[in-house]
């Protein structure tokens, strides 16, 4: 099963894509993914129910979040109300190690994203803050990367022994699926996604390998 683990909809301040249009696009264009995770900026969208869209298009639609730490941006998978109460998702200055600890304690997974990116990626902050404790997985392929950012991410992951996932970081409809992550078995829920990530059996799919553009 292939999931795009990093997407934004109009729920994010800079997102311009409606979820229904993502689904329509994937099916109309034959984008080679089985579903996607909505990782809205600095929030978790408890309210939206994408069950009907999911059934209509036979796509897995999961929800996560993209929070902001001193090491840059971090995807959080497996968000629960209990985890949501542990720290302020809206903050722009979360301490990464605490986020990782809370995720571990609440059955979630924290994944620093676009770590090779200046300013908002983890590699830009290692010299200042050192290697953070607890990180196991980083996003090594990001659909919005440029100027060698993915290469830096891959190098950092190899050096620090991290596993890698992929996601498009799409903000507009046509960018979904540009990078993705392949799992060996079906992943149909946020809980199953956490289990699959913790099982550490997955493969990041880079942009060039996808036919999504």
């Amino acid at each position: 099963m292939i999931l795009d683990l990093h997407t934004h909809s109009i729920k994010s301040d800079d997102g311009r894509a409606k979820v229904a249009n993502y689904c329509q696009w994937i099916r109309a264009r034959g984008v080679p993914i089985d579903g996607f995770v909505l990782t809205e900026h600095r929030q978790f969208d408890f309210a939206s129910d994408y069950g009907e869209l999911s059934r209509k298009h036979d796509l897995v639609i999961l929800k996560g979040a993209e929070v902001e730490t001193e090491y840059g941006h971090v995807l959080v998978f497996g968000v629960t109300e209990a985890l949501y109460g542990e720290f302020d998702f809206a903050s722009t200055r979360l301490p990464l190690e605490r986020v990782v600890e809370h995720c571990d304690a609440h059955g979630a997974v924290a994944v620093p994203c676009h770590p090779g990116r200046p300013r908002v990626g983890m590699s830009a902050h290692l010299a200042e803050h050192g290697v953070p404790k607890g990180v196991r997985i980083v996003e090594i392929h990001n659909g919005g990367s440029r100027d060698g950012e993915d290469e830096r991410a891959v190098a950092m992951a190899e050096e620090l022994g991290y596993l890698g996932v992929g996601g498009s970081d799409s903000h507009i409809v046509s960018h979904i699926g540009r990078c993705a992550t392949e799992f060996p078995a079906p992943v149909g829920s946020e809980g199953a996604l956490v289990e699959a990530l913790r099982a550490e059996e997955f493969r990041a799919i880079p942009k060039g390998e996808s036919t999504a553009g």
Partner: peptide, 8 residues
């Protein structure tokens, strides 16, 4: 804009 993060 939906639920943007806003510091105090």
């Amino acid at each position: 804009m939906a639920e943007a993060a806003v510091d105090e």
